[in-house]
């Protein structure tokens, strides 16, 4: 259960980052130049996919009744965390999402 929730949280965070970078203002904020329109579309599609996967992970963790509640909570908190870190440490906000995946993979293998 713990692992499914952690996966759900990380998917939610990664998804929110992708959606955030899909907005021109924030892409510029991080990379200093505007995104091409195809990249923007790809980022948004990835973001929505990740959020859907996060929802699935929540359902796997809590079941169909409680999963949606937990899933929305995870997405909310992931978004809030991102918004708070982004203006101070934009690269760190993204690096955290990337670095989280190998950690999660290791935890899966160990567990």
């Amino acid at each position: 259960m713990g692992l499914a929730i952690a996966t759900g949280l990380w998917l939610a965070y990664s998804g929110m980052i992708a959606l955030c970078l899909g907005l021109e203002r924030h892409y510029k904020q991080v990379w200093g130049r505007p995104p091409s329109s195809s990249r923007r579309r790809a980022l948004r599609a990835t973001g929505w996919l990740a959020l859907a996967a996060s929802f699935a992970a929540s359902v796997a963790a809590w079941g169909w009744a409680m999963g949606p509640i937990g899933g929305l909570g995870l997405v909310s908190l992931a978004g809030l965390a991102l918004v708070l870190v982004l203006p101070y440490q934009p690269r760190l906000a993204i690096g955290t999402a990337v670095a989280g995946w190998p950690v999660l993979a290791l935890a899966t293998l160990a567990g």
Binding site: M16, L19, C20, L23, R25, H26, G79, L82, V83, L84, L86, P87, Y88
Partner: peptide
């Protein structure tokens, strides 16, 4: 939506 992720401290 435009300021969904916006926080300017």
């Amino acid at each position: 939506f435009k300021e969904f992720f916006t926080f300017r401290p």
